[in-house]
């Protein structure tokens, strides 16, 4: 294979998988605390819009990323409030969040559908970026790609190397017991949900600030849902998120390249690949586990916690 094609495929994969890494690593933490938030798609699209708007008006990528992060967090706080204080069904509330997020961003973004912005560029480190092959692949990626990897590491570090992370895992395992020994279940879960919102917001922003310089109300195209699938695929283990996202990114890039080569399959069938792949990945995971119960599944996932005392 031609070297530059190889590099462009690899870079394509990082670009396709990064939004999923962001959204999935956030949701992973949320689910580890025992909460299932199906609103990822809605939070992502809000992040995508806010990132776009702020970039459009200020031209500052820092502010744009920050806005996306805060926007995702803000909209996730609705979910957090409803599920943690008003004890609503998490599945229903998460769906409502997705529908609401899609509607809200379509409404608020109606003035921006014709606009374009300046994309966030990949970094260039003198010397290092110029090394053949390794330079472009390791030292010249988009800054947000590095950030996504750092976030995965941080989540892992938090979960396994800090007391708070241990408490969060214990809450996901048995919220009644965690409450009995005095940990504040609702506070931990609230925080986790906000973090999940922030990450989904970042994932959305990546779409509108790095992938394409435009805004469209359907630009998430199911990536929030795919991120939810990745969490399951990763068995709730942080580093496996990267693996899953790369697999998915690979399929997306493959499909794009296949469309470029004159392959005699209609584009629609190729576009189905990422969605079908998600299903196949989930099935293959179950086949690998041979129907054994998985110890890393948070026991309390989706269950409502209400302390009687």
């Amino acid at each position: 294979m031609n070297e530059s094609l190889f590099i462009s495929i690899i870079i394509g994969i990082t670009i396709a998988s990064t939004p999923l890494i962001f959204a999935a690593i956030g949701e992973l933490l949320v689910e580890r605390s025992g909460v299932l938030n199906l609103g990822v798609e809605g939070m992502m699209i809000v992040g995508a819009l806010l990132g776009f708007i702020v970039q459009f008006h200020t031209g500052s990528p820092y502010l744009a990323v920050l806005a996306a992060l805060l926007g995702g967090m803000a909209i996730s706080s609705i979910f957090a409030f409803l599920t943690q204080f008003l004890l609503t069904n998490q599945v229903a509330t998460g769906l409502a969040l997705t529908l609401f997020g899609l509607g809200l961003s379509a409404f608020a973004g109606r003035g921006y559908t014709e606009e374009t912005i300046v994309l966030i560029k990949a970094i260039h480190i003198p010397f290092l970026s110029d090394i053949p092959v390794i330079g472009p692949l390791i030292f010249s990626l988009n800054p947000l790609v590095y950030l996504a990897l750092v976030m995965v590491y941080l989540v892992w570090w938090f979960l396994y190397k800090t007391k708070q992370g241990l408490i969060l895992r214990s809450i996901g395992d048995n919220h009644d017991a965690a409450h009995a020994i005095g940990h504040n279940v609702v506070r931990y879960r609230f925080m986790a949900i906000l973090f999940g919102g922030a990450m989904a917001g970042l994932g959305g922003a990546f779409l509108s600030l790095v992938q394409v310089p435009i805004w469209g109300e359907d630009m998430t195209a199911g990536r929030g849902w795919i991120a939810l699938g990745l969490v399951v695929f990763a068995s709730w283990l942080p580093f496996r998120i990267i693996l899953g996202a790369i697999l998915f990114g690979g399929i997306t890039v493959l499909q794009l390249h296949a469309q470029g080569f004159d392959i005699r399959i209609s584009a629609q069938y190729l576009s189905m690949l990422p969605y079908l792949a998600t299903i196949i990945i989930l099935v293959s995971l179950r086949i690998r586990l041979k129907n054994k119960t998985n110890r890393t599944v948070p026991n309390c996932l989706g269950r409502i916690f209400h302390s009687t005392s």
């Binding site: 849902w225 939810l228 699938g229 209609s266 629609q268 576009s271 079908l276 299903i279 179950r286």
Partner: peptide
């Protein structure tokens, strides 16, 4: 998939929605 492999039906039905919409488009061009 849920009965045989315990795969979550939320994700499967959703993914298949995207597939169905693409399928419609393929049918209408074919």
């Amino acid at each position: 998939l849920r009965i045989r492999y315990q795969v979550n039906e939320i994700l499967v039905t959703l993914m298949l929605t995207y597939v169905a919409v693409l399928f419609l488009s393929a049918m209408l061009q074919g």
